[in-house]
Amino acid sequence: MGIDVRSRSELIRKIARDPAPDARWRGPLQLALLWWFGAWIFVVAVTLAVQPMRPGFGAQLLASPRFAFETLLGVAAGGMAIGTAFALGIPGWGSTRRRIAAAMALLAFWIGMYCYGLANPALEASMLGKRPHCFVEVLIYGVPALVAGLLLLRRLAPLGRCSAGFVVGAAAGAIPALLMQLACVYIPSHILAFHIAPAFAVALIGALAGRLLLREI
């Protein structure tokens, strides 16, 4: 807004005359759910278009409670991250630090399961389902989801643009990373290096992109 004013009264007079904003689709929960479903549909569609899922992943989910728990934990961590990102869009809605810390703690717990799996994997290591470019896939599926998330978050007013962008990026990267758990090989060291690492890169891109794409309040 290019306002050239000399006094507070003049400023108030000018901005009070601005038309009332469009109130549709401004709820943080609405926006988070819209993004969540849209991002999952997009990532699943492009993943399947490139290569089918790993054969037998469904039976593995049923046969191994720890594998199922890892998968559900990833879903919960991504969901909490995007919920947090949109909650950050409402100034004064609880403690920003605590929200981000809780979301990051759940993501760290999910990643920690794979670190534990280095010594004690949930499934027997196998090259079945290997995708030759899974690292790149996580990056290129995560970035459009990140951009969509930031464009939706522009409808709100996050005060910390970098931190909000980082959290959106973490959620956007987590979805393809988690899907690769079912679509690509299950080897914890491979998962950490080729699925989780690019997801973290998407989060870092989110921190930079947040500064550019989110409105300064």
């Binding site: 807004m1 306002i3 400023l11 901005i15 601005d18 904003p21 469009d22 109130a23 401004r26 869009g89 409402i90 100034p91 004064g92 809605w93 409808r155 709100l156 007013a157 005060l159 409105r215 309040i217």
Partner: peptide, 23 residues
């Protein structure tokens, strides 16, 4: 000006002061 830019995020079901002072 910041209050003006963020005004759509004010929820009448929540208190005004925490929202305003956060900004």
């Amino acid at each position: 000006l910041a209050i003006h830019r963020a005004r759509t995020t004010f929820d009448p079901a929540r208190r005004f002061r925490p929202w305003m002072f956060a900004i």
